[in-house]
Computed example of a mutant assay.
Amino acid sequence: MNLSTYKTASGFLLPSIHSAPPFFTQQPNTATQAGFTEQWTRLLLAYARHRRLFTLRLEDAEVPGGEWDEVLRNPRINRRLMPNHLAHVLDVMVSKDLAVYEPAKQMRAVLLYWRSPDEWADVLHEWATNTGQLNTILTFYEISDPPVPSALSGIPESLLRGAIAVLAKSGRAQLISISDGDGVRFFPPRTK
């Protein structure tokens, strides 16, 4: 079997394992399945980061031409990841804090942590500092849909709230209720 890497239309380089038909099938051997699940986890997070995708749903495994199609299917070997296999991968990702079920209390869609809430907190505070937003109250909309695209463009509100909570614990931000909903004020880092 000739396994090779492959560059997708979006410019993402699929690893050679993506050319192996068994990669797309749940394996009866638990060690083999655990290895494949680890590789799927890395692949899905890398692809999500590459495409700036935050959500993955079981339905994405069944949607030809969808935003996840390049990674969940391999037409060159006529294989696709089935929803029940994807559900297993997502469950493992959630158990390792690499994703959370979103919305909560269901198991069909996850919010992916290709950056952890702590990492998003650092990105958020750096953005606020670099754009002169310290000591200014901003709405969530102003952060997730800024006039100049940023690393925070399109960030889901629940992930933004998690990042703000991290900043609030360290005294670098404060959640504020405003007429439009919630806002946040950023503070300079505390000096020791």
Rank of each mutant, 00 (worst) to 15 (best):
D182I: 00
S179A: 13
A163D: 01
T139N: 04
V166L: 00
S19C: 06
P21W: 03
T129P: 03
N84E: 14
G66E: 06
N74H: 14
T32M: 12
K192M: 13
D91W: 14
L81A: 10
T136P: 00
D182Q: 05
L111C: 04
I178F: 04
G171P: 03
A104L: 13
L45D: 05
G183V: 06
S158P: 02
S10T: 11
F12P: 13
R185G: 02
F140N: 06
D97F: 05
D118T: 10
L53I: 05
G181M: 00
F12Q: 09
D180N: 13
L45E: 09
F23P: 06
L98F: 04
A121Q: 09
A9N: 14
D122E: 09
V166W: 02
D145P: 01
W68D: 06
E59S: 15
I77P: 00
L90H: 09
D122Q: 10
P103M: 03
Y101Q: 04
L86N: 04
Y113L: 10
E70G: 06
G171H: 05
L3K: 07
K169F: 06
G65T: 08
I17P: 05
L43H: 05
E38L: 08
W114P: 08
A173K: 03
E59D: 15
R79G: 02
I143K: 04
